[in-house]
Write a protein that binds this DNA or RNA. Structure first.
Lengths: 232, 232
DNA sequence: CAAAGATAATGACATATATCAATATATCGG
DNA sequence: CCGATATATTGATATATGTCATTATCTTTG
């Protein structure tokens, strides 16, 4: 078993691990498999950049990736942290064929690229797959609304609480985790300066809500954290 | 000609005015027409409310509607101001069948409701319509990203500039307009208190960038406004 | 038309948050 | 293993923005 093991298995292996391809029959999976390009990224490497043409549909099979909007004054807003097996899709696919956010590997990662012509033809020819796709982007859209409220109506403790709960529930699936996200990344997820993010984390630590040691996090009191998220 | 004139014309009339139905053939249009319920709303009336079941696809044929997320402490975040002929669709349609934002008429308005079964069957059976729909929600998603940056990375003058440019370009299509949005609404569009919104508007007026008189607005210096939007 | 209620405008003040500067700690290449 | 470089932490200070109180203006209605 080496890092290329995944390579030989192809799309069928991913189908078993994720529901995103569950609507596709074997012929359709083979069709993707044929066009598929597998790429390895090292931690810190840019996968695609905001403002460049969006020519491929991208599926993450190993590692972790952050997606972020590059805003003003070199400030970024992290939209999501993607884990395997999920696809990373932007709205450009059906609009202007451009990337509207950037994606960067935060761990060593493997992604499969499939050209959009193949992807779009699957959408056109398989209504189940189309509906599944619509559901996926709808869920993402719903999450974006929550993000809107968190970022615009909550104060810093509420925003940091939301970030911690997101990491626990959506990314690492555990109360304790070691993250490869920097403090700057946590700040970019909560729309504040890194100094402020650090201060809030320390407060949470002092209050016994979390345990932090470098990049090791443990959420000790989820209810309290949820309450902070609620009260803003 | 009275307010009900629109009624008798049906969907074909809307097809001429808007591109949203351009992919549908006459049979399909008739199919919608048959299921269509036309409803009149007075200014200030709630069209649908966040947290209630989303059972219909909604198309605005007259008037203006604001869509907004109801957040914490009775604070709202206005997502869009919709004008005819556009549809108002939420991500709930393909996710949990719930409304994730509210919609309220800000002028006397007319909307057509079509049950989701009919709508979804059109999506399934007409790939062109499905692609068109995907394009629509993609464009909305792209706009949401711009909103993210405006709300989280710009200071108040930049945010108010963005609101004014949005009203000019996307809602009223003119440098001068009379709006039915209150100052509170403008504040809810830019994520600030109404007092702050009022103050910034006065500053813009004093600097000769805009002319304001009650609800009558005129943008005198679009370049300056764009520059304020850019510099944050 | 007048009274009542809503909306708008303005000023004084409080505070959440960013910025800047200094120090500490971790990470990495040779 | 060590110096160099990046990242994290902390404190002092500045500032953008919200809140509260007051007055003005508009709108509605009997």
């Amino acid at each position: 078993m080496n890092q290329y093991t995944q390579y030989s298995k192809g799309c069928s292996a991913c189908k078993d691990k994720a529901d995103i391809f569950s609507c596709l029959c074997q012929t359709e999976l083979d069709q993707i498999d044929e066009k598929r390009i597998e790429v390895h990224f090292k931690a810190g490497e840019l996968i695609f950049k905001q403002g460049t043409p969006n020519m491929h549909f991208l599926c993450l099979t190993q590692g972790k990736v952050k997606t972020y909007i590059e805003g003003f004054n070199d400030k970024n807003l992290i939209l999501s942290v993607v884990k395997p097996v999920e696809y990373i899709l932007g709205p450009g696919i059906y609009a202007d064929q451009m990337h509207h956010f950037s994606a960067m590997a935060i761990e060593d990662s493997v992604a499969c690229l499939v050209d959009l012509v193949t992807f779009k033809s699957l959408i056109r020819n398989n209504p189940d797959f189309a509906e599944d796709f619509l559901k996926k982007i709808s869920l993402q859209s719903i999450y974006n609304y929550e993000l809107f409220i968190s970022l615009t109506q909550k104060q810093m403790p509420g925003r940091i609480a939301d970030v911690l709960l997101y990491l626990k529930d959506k990314v690492y699936g555990s109360n304790s985790f070691r993250t490869s996200l920097s403090r700057q990344d946590l700040a970019d997820m909560s729309g504040m300066s890194k100094e402020s993010a650090i201060r809030i984390l320390r407060e949470f630590k002092d209050e016994g809500i979390i345990q932090v040691n470098g990049n090791d996090f443990e959420i000790l009191n989820t209810e309290h954290l949820s309450k902070i998220s609620q009260t803003g």
